[in-house]
Amino acid sequence: MNSYAVFLRGVNVGGITIKMADLKEALKSRPFSAVKTLLASGNVVLSSDLPAAGVKAEFEACLRETFGYDAWVVVLTADRVAALVEACPYPADDASTHSYVTLSSDTAVLSDLYDAGAALDGVELTRLGPEAMAWLAPAGGTLDSPFSKLSAKPKYKASTTTRNLRTLVKVRDAAAQLGAA
């Protein structure tokens, strides 16, 4: 049995509202166990015998069938989430900046986003691996930051999602508990 973290894109923003209790209930019919939702922004940890690609396919099908929207998720093993948190050079808590990690299910799309972001003035990015990059935004100005505006473009929508590093730490810790159980 493998432990995974699943990151939903675009839930509880932009008109797509899913109660985490409803999501957990919907997932009961899928080949997942020990399902736990974290926060209201679409973070789930679970166990499954499926490979990551199978978890992604089952999870997206569940969202589309149950909640009626064109759903996209990024699925990472618990170990990979822990490695990404460890690799992030930015602080989880800082008074002047917020640290974010953009995750992707398509490495080519993430590479394109990284290259476009690196070309922006004053943007600090760090590639953490083929599926993730970290970036900083000024406290209180995340949505107005040049990289946030770039990453919100439709061409990145289907394969990327962003989490605050503090959220990723919580997901890492919850996923690690699944593996220890």
Rank of each mutant, 00 (worst) to 15 (best):
D144C: 06
L125M: 10
A116S: 13
F32H: 06
S41F: 04
G122R: 11
S41N: 09
Q177M: 02
G179N: 02
V45E: 00
A53S: 09
E58D: 06
E60F: 03
D94L: 09
V109Y: 01
S111T: 11
V171G: 07
A82E: 13
D79M: 11
P138Y: 00
Y114M: 14
P51F: 04
T102Y: 00
G140H: 09
P138T: 10
T107M: 10
L46K: 00
Y114V: 12
T37D: 08
A26Q: 07
S99D: 14
F7S: 00
R9H: 07
V171I: 14
V75W: 03
L150Q: 09
E60V: 03
S148Y: 13
D144R: 14
V101A: 10
L84G: 11
L23G: 09
A52Y: 01
P31R: 00
Y69S: 02
V35I: 15
E86A: 15
K157D: 11
I16D: 05
D94W: 07
V6I: 14
T77E: 03
L136N: 08
K56T: 06
V75E: 06
Q177S: 05
D70M: 04
S3P: 03
V44F: 02
K149N: 04
S145W: 11
Y90E: 13
Y156C: 06
S105E: 12
G140S: 06
T66R: 15
A83S: 14
V85L: 11
N2E: 13
C62F: 10
A34D: 08
V74I: 15
G141A: 05
R127F: 06
E58P: 04
S33T: 15
F7G: 01
G141S: 04
L125T: 08
T126Q: 15
A71Y: 03
E60D: 06
D121Y: 03
A176V: 01
G42L: 08
V171M: 08
F59Y: 02
L125Y: 10
S96R: 04
D93Y: 10
Y4P: 02
T160A: 01
V13E: 11
K153G: 14
R30E: 15
S151H: 05
V75Y: 04
T142Y: 13
W72I: 00
A174I: 07
D79E: 15
A61F: 04
A181F: 02
A61V: 01
F147C: 03
A134P: 07
D144L: 12
L103D: 07
A139Q: 11
I18W: 10
L165I: 09
A71K: 06
N2R: 03
V109I: 13
V101Q: 13
E86T: 15
L46D: 03
P31N: 02
S41G: 12
L27M: 09
L76Q: 15
A26S: 14
S104V: 06
A95K: 11
L39Y: 07
T97C: 13
T66F: 01
F59L: 07
L23K: 10
D94H: 12
V73K: 05
G129R: 12
S111A: 15
A87F: 11
V81E: 03
P91S: 14
A52P: 15
V109S: 14
A21S: 14
R9Q: 08
